[in-house]
């Protein structure tokens, strides 16, 4: 049985420190498929031949860091689930461009939900194009249902 997490200690140690850098690239067809599956109809999202073809604006939330948590972060027992995602597109993302995602822990907090005490981890990835321009940032809130201690 794992002990409850000491959230304040975790915040002190891990918040705001970049723990992962990873590169990403999407083909035009993958971007178009992504957009069409979501229900986009505008050709700038669905047709790689469009002069203004670009990724759908929420794509940055699909990027996953190479490591989910910082090194040394305690292993948490329980089922991890997406609790929420926020994305802020800042510039168009084009096909076949190498993107660099830098991830850090933005927040850690707890609450009780329908399923007992839950710990929320908010991981922010800032995404840059090859010129170093930030093209998007995406927050992922992962909630882990703690197993009750007995």
């Amino acid at each position: 049985m794992s002990a409850p997490l000491d959230v304040e200690a975790l915040k002190e140690e891990f918040l705001f420190k970049v723990f992962d850098e990873k590169t990403f690239s999407f083909s035009g067809q993958a971007l178009a498929d992504y957009a069409i599956a979501c229900g986009e109809t505008a050709s700038r999202y669905t047709d790689p031949a469009d002069a203004d073809f670009q990724a759908p604006p929420t794509i940055a939330t699909s990027l996953q860091p190479g490591q989910r948590m910082p090194k040394g972060f305690p292993k948490v027992a329980g089922l991890g689930m997406d609790a929420g995602k926020a994305v802020s597109p800042k510039a168009p993302i084009r096909p076949d461009v190498e993107l660099l995602g830098k991830s850090h822990m933005q927040d850690i907090y707890t609450k009780t939900g329908r399923s007992g005490r839950m710990v929320f981890f908010v991981i922010r990835m800032e995404v840059f194009d090859p010129s170093g321009t930030e093209v998007a940032s995406a927050d992922t809130s992962v909630v882990i249902r703690e197993k009750p201690s007995v």
Partner: peptide
């Protein structure tokens, strides 16, 4: 996937306002 649900929301906005620029989408699952 949650990210797909988020994509649905963006697509809905574009269908309503095709020329709009989405600055932020915040979803709670």
């Amino acid at each position: 996937p949650g990210i797909m649900s988020q994509g649905f929301l963006a697509a809905m906005i574009h269908r309503w306002a095709p020329g709009s620029v989405i600055e932020n989408v915040d979803t709670i699952f």
